[in-house]
């Protein structure tokens, strides 16, 4: 028999650990990186708490003053733009309409299409798939002028429809749901059919609940994507009443140019308001967001 001595009771001394410079270096790199990402926005926030005159004189300021609330109020309620027709509140609302409208529209339309492609015997399924797939190749930016002409021809400029629907004309969502539906076990539909579920029942009772996290993930990505649209809204909305916050940024900058003392505080406040909703949703639903992003690009 062998030598056993594991019964010697030793007091639980704190684990001896080697100090590693490598680990310190790792953290240093990460802290530096985080600061690089964080500082611009943090400084924008602190600067926003100063008055326009002070910002004009000092530029970006690290510190806190008392104008934060005032600048926010100004940004939210004061009418601005060339025709003095829009407030920050209105822009915020338009941004939400664009973000949510786009995300929902995209999800509904692409889920339906993906369902048809994956779950039905369809003679032209492959053809439909390729028609949709090709749209992945050309982002809106490269066909921006003719798209504008088409929307203008339909009289949809300065409408929410003209703003949102053309943005939906790509296949990212369809692709994403197609991948997901294909990964749903075959037995699911077989069991459902044996239980007497038709195509509509199966979709609503089984597939949609199964896709819940996927829907949440894609919603976050699409919401951020829609909210952050810039070029398309710039072209389609010329009436200030329809401006989104991101679209309004350009207006702010152009007003800066002419003024003796530009309204920096208000401009920064609007920029911050334009960041808060998408940043909040990405930070709070981080896991879904990362999952959606990584999966959708596969």
């Amino acid at each position: 028999m062998a030598e056993i001595s594991q019964t010697i009771a030793t007091p639980a001394a704190p684990p001896r650990r080697r100090f590693r410079w490598g680990r310190v270096f790792d953290h240093a790199v990460l802290i530096l990186g985080s600061a690089f990402m964080l500082m611009p926005v943090l400084l924008a926030l602190t600067t926003m708490s100063f008055s326009d005159v002070q910002i004009e004189r000092q530029g970006i300021i690290f510190g806190l003053s008392d104008q934060m609330g005032a600048n926010f109020t100004k940004a939210m309620t004061e009418k601005s733009g060339f025709t003095e027709a829009i407030t920050g509140t209105r822009m915020l609302m338009n941004s939400f309409i664009l973000g949510i409208g786009f995300a929902l529209g995209k999800i509904v339309i692409s889920m339906m299409a993906a369902y048809a492609i994956v779950y039905f015997r369809l003679r032209f399924a492959t053809f439909a798939f390729w028609i949709i797939f090709t749209t992945l190749l050309l982002p809106l930016e490269v066909r921006i002028l003719p798209s504008y002409e088409v929307v203008q021809g339909m009289g949809l400029t300065n409408t929410y429809t003209g703003l949102i629907v053309p943005l939906i004309a790509s296949a990212t969502g369809t692709f994403f749901f197609r991948q997901f539906f294909r990964s749903v076990p075959e037995e699911m539909i077989e069991a459902a059919r044996i239980d007497g579920a038709g195509p509509v029942k199966f979709f609503i009772d089984i597939l949609v609940p199964l896709s819940r996290t996927m829907i949440a993930a894609i919603f976050i990505i699409m919401f951020v994507f829609g909210w952050n649209q810039y070029l398309w809204p710039t072209l389609i909305t010329t009436e200030e009443g329809l401006f989104t916050l991101v679209r309004g940024i350009k207006q702010i900058i152009q007003v800066f140019e002419g003024a003796t003392i530009p309204e920096y505080g208000k401009g920064l406040a609007l920029a911050v308001i334009a960041m808060i909703p998408p940043v909040a949703i990405v930070v709070f639903f981080q896991n879904w967001f990362v999952k959606g992003l990584v999966e959708s690009e596969k």
Partner: peptide, 11 residues
């Protein structure tokens, strides 16, 4: 704080 292996000896 979890003790995964108590003091053990063998050759």
């Amino acid at each position: 704080g979890a003790e995964a292996v108590t003091p053990s000896s063998f050759d």
